[in-house]
Design a protein around this nucleic acid. Structure first.
Lengths: 116, 116
DNA sequence: ATAACAGTTGAACAATTGAACAACTGTTGT
DNA sequence: ACAACAGTTGTTCAATTGTTCAACTGTTAT
């Protein structure tokens, strides 16, 4: 079955109208990639914890019952997405939320859960 | 390496303080599951389109260059998460966003992308 | 009734992803 | 210089996930 052509165009006006506003693929990939990061309970727990206060890798491992390795891997992903930022202090690295967006995205998500 | 114990507890006060506020696992799973749904470019494109106007499955397939099947599978997931709602009209099924949260979560996500 | 078509659904396959393990950096203190 | 420890990183493996294909519903019109 051929993509996009296994059906007649039912409402051409609608499709055209929306198509004109449609952002390019990169936009959607970036947006999806951002949400993908929130889409894992371990990462969400880390973000939630860092929303309370700055913590080092070991603290997070103990708090969330994970290995340092697992925490570090996830922090790397979160760092890469500019959601957390590191602060080195001797041997330890303290992590905190990078900006206010994280908190806001969280709040909207929780709103939805509490209704559904 | 034993989980959560491959390091000394460095800041016990911090860990305890955060632990007391820590929601149960279900909370984080639900939250992650919600974001997981936004974490796919096809679903995000569908949601974006439905944010402009109500559309039927075929319209979405043509607009986004997908098979009806692929669209329907994704709509099922979105329906299940209460993000879209169907409206049957004869042979066609029109979908629209279920509530305002979707739009708000979107906006926050885009804010973040445009800064990073 | 039956043909036509919008939409749904299940199974199978490829691609992605999180966790675990082990090896490695980098900093501190002796 | 070296031991100790916080953190990082690469690899492997199992599990999850998106898409496709094919078969199936359900509604409309003849």
């Amino acid at each position: 079955m051929e993509i996009g052509t296994d059906c007649e165009i039912l409402h051409e006006e609608t499709v055209e109208r929306v198509k004109q506003k449609l952002p390019d693929d990169a936009f959607f990939f970036n947006l999806a990639d951002l949400y993908k990061i929130f889409g894992d309970s371990t990462r969400v727990r880390i973000l939630w914890a860092l929303d309370i206060e700055e913590m080092c890798v070991c603290d997070l491992a103990v708090l969330l019952n994970l290995t340092k390795s697992a925490v570090s891997h996830q922090l790397r992903i979160l760092r890469h997405a500019n959601l957390v930022k590191p602060r080195r202090a001797g041997k330890e690295v303290f992590y905190s939320l990078a900006d206010e967006h994280v908190k806001e995205i969280f709040e909207k998500g929780m709103d939805h859960i509490q209704e559904g």
